[in-house]
Design a protein around this nucleic acid. Structure first.
Lengths: 158, 158
DNA sequence: TTATATCTTAGAGTATACTCTAAGGCAAGA
DNA sequence: TCTTGCCTTAGAGTATACTCTAAGATATAA
């Protein structure tokens, strides 16, 4: 005898609200979910794998439309293995680009933290402008260079 | 004599559309921009630094409302150095969390790529179910464990 | 002077992803 | 039987961040 989970059970376990689960279903992401005679969603243990895959794809920044496409292929079985592979391969590349960008931003935010600490110590936001050139920290020149590249349109807006 | 840039110049150089620049201005992010007598925005070379900071904060995932708050403090000068430092320090932590999560997703997407390659070779999406227990790759058990934790509600939904 | 180009504003429209409400069905316990 | 509490649906509302349109002002070149 198979065990079924209600939408509320699934919501509690997964942290996805019941509203959101219904919304995903409406959008065609949950085609694998069975229904009772009276139309109630009957989630099984096996359903947690595609649900987990959906949350992972979402966390990796994939829009719902593309996740829907993936779930359609998932329902079609063995013939779609290659296409599903390509989806993950592409997602891997997009994810890497996202990570690279966030890491670059981390560098800048980290610099800003240092800069404001210095400015606070000296009580002046423009402290470096009053220092002799050779006493100005390297990081300030580097940031200035980035701003300059941005001003000149050298920054990549792809 | 000071050189001024029009909104169009700035749009071309920074990759931010003129529409978006006006929108940011309307939202109170560009309080530092001067205007001509007839109301035309006159961007200067110095304006590119806060503009660059805005794009960095945006890329690091900060909502416009908070960027607005930061720009208000920026306009107030030296008294707000400490508060601005705190904003960057907090943003640094949020950014790290984001990077960590994306890196975790990278692990899963990478696993999925491997899995679909295997499934394609064998022409069966459920290939591992037909293998003897000791021949099933370690990564498949690991993924199964994650799905199981997700099903049991052990996954962190913070 | 007139045409073209660029600027301005307010405000409407779009996309994404929820988030909730309203109206109603169904099943189990008091 | 009736109330409670779950489920269903369609559809409206929200938040964020643009994106664009329309109407009109201003500046420059022919």
């Amino acid at each position: 005898m198979e065990k079924f989970y209600t939408i509320k059970d699934v919501a509690e376990r997964t942290g996805i609200s019941a509203y959101t689960i219904r919304y995903y279903d409406k959008e065609g992401l949950l085609t694998f979910v069975k229904r009772s005679e009276s139309g109630i969603r009957l989630f099984t243990d096996e359903d947690f794998e595609p649900l987990y895959t959906i949350t992972c794809l979402k966390k990796s920044g994939m829009p719902l439309k593309e996740i829907k496409r993936f779930m359609e292929l998932f329902m079609q079985g063995n013939e779609t293995i290659h296409e599903r592979y390509l989806i993950f391969k592409e997602q891997k590349e997009r994810l890497q680009k996202q990570i690279d960008e966030l890491q670059e931003m981390m560098g800048i935010v980290d610099y800003k933290c240092w800069y404001f600490e210095e400015a606070e110590k000296r009580g002046d936001i423009d402290f470096y402008k009053k220092l002799p050139r050779e006493e100005v920290d390297e990081r300030i020149w580097e940031f200035g260079k980035k701003v300059n590249d941005f001003r000149k349109g050298k920054t990549d807006h792809s």
